[in-house]
Design a protein around this nucleic acid. Structure first.
Length: 245
DNA sequence: ATGGCATAATTGTTATGA
């Protein structure tokens, strides 16, 4: 977040979103730049962690009813939720999982199972809920520039396709894919091997919403230009416009 | 089979990401 603060402030200034969800803060709540963001017109609530993980919700309105984590003993800061203007907002950083035969992948699967349970028991899909995050999984072949290159990895394998399907089964609609059924919509490109220049990308960052809210989504797009700036994140912003009436 | 590139922790190197 330190190295990306100027990029975030510039992006907020140019796009003026009502809400921005962040993942991989890699900083503690104490070191988070609340004052700079407030000067730019944004309140922030964070679930930070030193060096790794960390998630936040930025909003023009002050978020209320903040929930950090899933109420368990998970030591990794990967989830935060709050009410913003009558809508439940969730920012999530799904574990990557490293390798399919690793403890990290075991943790990823357990985290996803806990998430579905937590989401289903905490909220009603009749309510307006938006879930934004780095999901570290592709859902269909359209989400990968080179599916064969990724098949069998922690990002793209039969189990991950099931996990993506489970998100829809618990009542979430993938807004970008719903509005853009044929566009790739990559949100991540590898820093290495000229991944961006060759468009060797993945769509692993999603904005999902309950049906009641998804019906109000009018557009969704990936800000690919942000990935082409100086010292960019390897992820690009995913933007959804809702017509809330 | 490995590294490739970047970040945060630190100042030489490791852990992690996807």
């Amino acid at each position: 977040m330190k190295v990306r603060l100027d990029a975030v402030l510039n992006w907020l200034g140019r796009n003026s979103p009502d809400v921005l969800c962040l993942q991989e803060l890699k900083t503690t709540d104490e070191a988070f730049p609340f004052a700079e963001l407030l000067d730019a017109g944004y309140h922030a609530v964070t679930n930070g962690q030193k060096t790794y993980n960390g998630v936040a919700i930025l909003a023009r309105l002050e978020p209320t009813d903040v929930v950090r984590g899933m109420g368990d003993d998970d030591l990794q800061a990967r989830l935060i939720s709050a009410m913003v203007g009558g809508i439940r907002v969730v920012s999530a950083y799904v574990p990557n999982g490293a390798e399919v035969d690793s403890d990290k992948y075991v943790y990823k699967l357990a985290w996803l199972a806990r998430f579905s349970e937590w989401f289903s028991t905490s909220f009603s899909t009749a309510d307006e809920i938006v879930l934004c995050g780095d999901f570290n999984m592709a859902g269909t072949e359209l989400d990968l520039h080179r599916p064969a290159q990724w098949e069998g990895t922690v990002i793209w394998n039969p189990r991950m396709r099931e996990e993506y399907a489970r998100l829809t089964q618990i009542g979430l609609v993938d807004i970008y894919r719903n509005l853009n059924p044929a566009a790739a919509g990559y949100s991540w490109w590898d820093y290495r091997m000229n991944g961006f220049a060759r468009n060797n990308g993945l769509r692993i960052d999603y904005v999902m919403a309950t049906p009641a809210l998804s019906r109000k989504a009018v557009s969704a797009w990936i800000d690919k230009a942000e990935r082409a700036t100086e010292r960019p994140s390897d992820h690009a912003p995913v933007i959804v416009d809702f017509d809330l009436g």
